[in-house]
Every structure is written in structure tokens, then in C-alpha cells.
Design a protein around this nucleic acid. Structure first.
Length: 141
DNA sequence: GCCAACGTTGGC
DNA sequence: GCCAACGTTGGC
């Protein structure tokens, strides 16, 4: 099962908004690497939701509820989006500063390529996020 | 607001 | 196909 991290500016689409919506189409990605990661997402994959900009913290988790399809917001070019469903809000947001300090994230793409907006996480990195965020384990549906 | 890192573009 | 120039992103 894959694990991922998606990044968003809080001013564009906040985690609070995402929680309120319950699920959303993850559109607007215009970077080939990020797009290819979207396309590699599979139903049920686990996702960390991270806010760049002013917050710079991971705020919670989501699951992939719909695999890649053509991004309806793309006017030209070959772009994709997925459907994400909100899973859990972290009791403690995990700031970038903690991620940088933690040896568990030494190889994390978030640290190594801060510009990428959709990236894979190892299962260990995903678990570490949940640990630091003190997320309660999601009940299996 | 600045700057470094990265991706993309376009000239050769 | 290479590489310099440029634009964008995101951390500080």
C-alpha cells in the first residue's frame, strides 16, 4: 500500500476546508513529477496533508478515494487529479522544523526537494507523521 | 522581501 | 541534445 504527502497553500485550500468538504478532487497540479505521483496513487493509499506557506506543517491524513483521471481544471496539457477523502486531523500539527530535526525524515522528499507538491512517503515516514501528530488510528471501514 | 533550488524554455 | 536564461516555488 502506497503512502504519499500532498502539499497545499492554506490560502488556496485549507485543511479545515478539506475536513468540512469530506472529500475533494485534488486538481491544479502542473508539475510532471507531481502528476506522475498522482497517477501512481491507488485506492486506499494513505496521504499526509501538508500546508506550505505560512503554516509549514502537516495537519492530518487522507485516503485516496478515486484514482487518477483527467484534471477538469486543465485548459491544455496532459494533467491528472485524484479524489482524496479526509481521514484524520492530527491532535498536534507536525511542523516542518520538527520534520527537519527528526532522523526518521532524513531521506524524506519533503526535506530533500521542498518544491515538489506531491511526493511518495515510505511507510515508516507515514507512521512517524501519525506518531508525531498523535493521530488516532483510523477505524477500518 | 529576499534568495536558493528547481523546472522549463528556447537558441544554438 | 546541450546549456544559459528565465520563471516559480517555498523557506527564511
Amino acid at each position: 500500500m502506497g503512502c504519499w504527502l500532498v502539499k497545499e497553500e492554506p490560502t488556496k485550500y485549507s485543511f479545515a476546508c478539506f475536513l468540512a468538504d469530506g472529500r475533494t478532487e485534488w486538481t491544479g497540479v502542473r508539475n510532471y513529477q507531481a502528476r506522475n505521483h498522482l497517477r501512481a496513487m491507488r485506492l486506499g493509499d494513505e496521504v499526509v496533508f501538508y500546508h506550505s506557506g505560512k503554516l509549514k506543517a502537516a495537519l492530518g491524513t487522507a485516503v485516496v478515494a478515486g484514482e487518477a483521471f483527467a484534471d477538469p481544471t486543465a485548459e491544455d496539457g496532459d494533467w491528472s487529479c485524484v479524489v482524496l477523502e479526509a481521514a484524520a486531523a492530527f491532535a498536534e500539527p507536525v511542523p516542518l522544523s520538527s520534520v527537519r530535526k527528526d532522523p526518521a525524515f532524513a531521506e524524506c522528499v519533503l526535506v530533500k526537494n521542498s518544491r515538489l507538491s506531491v511526493m511518495p512517503l515510505t511507510a515508516a515516514e507515514y507512521r512517524r507523521f501519525c506518531q508525531l501528530g498523535r493521530a488516532r488510528k483510523r477505524a477500518k471501514a
